[in-house]
Amino acid sequence: MPQRRLVTGRSQEPRQRFAEELRQLRARKGDSLRQLGERLGWDWSLFGKMEKGETLGGPEVIQALDQYFGTPGLLLALWELAAGDHTQFRERYRRYMALEAEAVSLWHFAVSVLPGLLQTPGYAREVLAAGGIRGAELEQQVKARMSRRELLEGEEAPPFRTILAEAVLRTPLQDEGEWHAQLAYLARTANRDNVTVQVLPQSTGVHGLVATDVWFLRLADGRSVAYTENAHWGELVEENARIERLNRAYDVVRDMAMSPAESREFILRRLEEVPCDSST
């Protein structure tokens, strides 16, 4: 029996199909590799290697490409198949990443680590390295995380509120200079019109989100979704009853947190406690 011919003519080998899709999307956009690198903030040679199938890049690089090409979730799904990683990036997480790019407002609670949207390169590098990422992949991931901060910039940036458990601000980096830079960046960002930062004092004790990082996304059609995560896994929550329970817990935490003005003062006090290396 003759082999069935593929209608699309595209490769069915996951890695090659991923590379083909990247080439076609870039060609459709009319960008050179160098232009693509300049617009997304990565070395253009990385995209050249990805299009040749020599490397796959990291997940945050792929998310940035999905956002740039207007294909939310598509490239990430192809990347997952090519990488053969069916544990870290399940369907619900891919869906969350696509929804985040479309959200008209974002609410967040942090247990122990600053959200990626507020991280400096030094902070991101240490956090990612603690998770076992090394070498060139680490640098790619750091650049990718920095690109996500653009979500909070510009005239059409969505409003973002984060409540930080006090432990987040009392867990320093090993490098004091980088920790000082991170606190300074957080203090500046907290002054943006679309960003609200609150600190939850340790003295408030046990609460409904004591062990849960959570994101709430409000979408343009009025729907809301939530995403809960810990150091090992995350879950997209779309059931209204569960979202409502998480929302009630979040409201309680927000009522117990310092006001935005008090929180800025708290961050500045922490900043004053950290030695500043004048050479940085």
Rank of each mutant, 00 (worst) to 15 (best):
S32H: 08
E153H: 12
P59L: 10
R15Y: 09
P158K: 03
E139L: 07
A167I: 08
L209C: 06
P121H: 04
R161N: 12
V104K: 10
M1L: 07
G222A: 05
N247K: 14
D255L: 15
L152D: 08
A249Q: 10
R10A: 11
Y93I: 13
E54Y: 09
L118W: 01
S224N: 12
V225C: 03
G70P: 00
L114W: 06
R90W: 10
G135M: 08
R248M: 13
D85S: 07
E100C: 00
M50T: 02
E102C: 02
D255F: 12
L246G: 00
P115F: 07
L56S: 04
L219H: 06
T189W: 05
Q3C: 10
Y68V: 01
T212R: 10
Q67R: 14
G122D: 00
T87W: 13
V195I: 15
A130L: 12
E229K: 06
G135T: 07
I243L: 13
R248N: 12
L200F: 08
A226Y: 02
E80M: 14
L75P: 03
T280N: 10
L25T: 00
G234V: 02
V104C: 09
A220M: 10
I267P: 00
V197P: 00
R223M: 08
R223P: 05
V113P: 00
S32P: 00
P201I: 04
T171S: 15
A220R: 14
A82R: 04
P72L: 01
E229R: 06
F266Y: 15
P121I: 05
A144P: 03
D85F: 06
A129S: 13
T8E: 07
A64S: 15
R15L: 09
V199F: 03
Y227V: 02
Y68W: 11
E244N: 14
E137N: 11
R17Y: 02
L78G: 00
E20H: 03
L128S: 06
E100P: 03
L22K: 01
G48M: 01
G222H: 07
D277F: 13
Q119N: 06
W44D: 12
W79V: 01
E139G: 01
G9A: 09
N240K: 15
K52W: 05
R17A: 10
T228R: 11
Q67W: 09
H86R: 15
N230L: 09
V199D: 02
Q67T: 12
G116V: 08
E244F: 13
Q63F: 07
